[in-house]
């Protein structure tokens, strides 16, 4: 009956609320001020936009002066295609490495693991040279190839651990029925790893969407910019136009914010589950 309120708990909540304000306050400020007139941004930065101060002029600027929609489509394409390939190719390799015992199994597993610790960024000089030779500079293909190579090692590790938990009997039953190894993978394993996709997505999708380095080096122009790079270039050009800067930041934050709040349950679970290992 007695409510569970103790002085200690109140102090805990005060500490957590204060830090939460510190963590999301700046982001909230950007979102709020993006919808205010320049005068209001400076005179009352902490206030919410009201009838008098509300404006979308910043957003109009962003859409007329840059190809934001295009950047968004670019980012989406690169992220989704990369993630799809990472999961498919990664699952195939993870399946091969966990299911079959063959000569070189351990060596290949170790070889793939190098990429978890060594950042592929350090190979940029050669990557750029290769992309020039392959005529892939300023294409989304270049980004996809690099991101797939970058994401595979961790994906294989996570998916491998997940595949190991699928009961052996399932595959052995199929083998007794004479189902081919390819069919076993396609119709038994692939459908069963869907829950692991959330975990793989946390570790691969977010870094891809947010990356600045490779878009800057491999696809900096020709309308192939991603959102991150596009916003960076846009702000670099219009630093002094506060409305436009705030609006472009808001546009960059919004999709992630919405996705995150929708799926945070899975993201957080994936993150903590990965850590338990």
């Amino acid at each position: 009956m007695r409510p569970n309120i103790r002085p200690g708990r109140i102090a805990v909540h005060i500490a957590l609320v204060l830090y939460t304000i510190l963590a999301i306050g700046p982001i909230a400020l950007i979102l709020i001020n993006a919808f205010k007139t320049r005068r209001a941004i400076f005179s009352d930065p902490l206030g919410f936009p009201d009838a008098r101060t509300f404006t979308t002029i910043g957003f109009d600027q962003v859409f007329t002066k840059s190809d934001f929609g295009l950047y968004f489509v670019n980012s989406l394409t690169v992220t989704v295609v990369s993630l799809g390939l990472i999961i498919l190719i990664g699952a195939m390799a993870a399946w091969a490495l966990t299911e079959y015992r063959f000569r070189g199994n351990t060596i290949i597993a170790l070889y793939m693991a190098i990429g978890i610790m060594v950042p592929i960024r350090l190979g940029s000089v050669s990557i750029l040279r290769m992309m020039v030779e392959l005529n892939l500079v300023n294409t989304l293909t270049a980004l996809v190839l690099v991101y797939v190579a970058q994401g595979l090692p961790l994906a294989i590790l996570i998916l491998g651990e997940f595949i190991q938990q699928i009961p052996r009997d399932l595959r052995d039953a199929a083998r007794c029925d004479g189902v081919s190894e390819y069919r076993i993978f396609a119709s038994i394993i692939l459908p069963l790893i869907t829950p692991a996709i959330a975990t793989v997505a946390v570790f691969t999708m977010v870094p891809i969407w947010n990356d600045l380095w490779f878009p800057l080096i491999l696809a900096p122009g020709d309308g192939k910019q991603t959102v991150t790079l596009g916003v960076q270039q846009f702000i670099g050009q219009y630093v002094t136009d506060w409305n436009a800067v705030l609006a472009s930041l808001t546009l960059a934050i919004a999709p992630i914010l919405v996705l995150y709040l929708l799926f945070s349950r899975y993201l957080v679970r994936g993150l903590t589950a990965g850590a338990v290992k």
């Binding site: 390799a93 490495l97 793939m112 060594v118 190579a149």
Partner: peptide
């Protein structure tokens, strides 16, 4: 079939991650 399952991952990873590092 093991080779088939491994080939795409090994190819992309080697070509765009390990090779560039070594070449660098």
């Amino acid at each position: 079939h093991v080779a088939v399952f491994l080939a795409p991952a090994l190819a992309i990873y080697t070509l765009f991650s390990i090779y560039p590092l070594i070449d660098t």
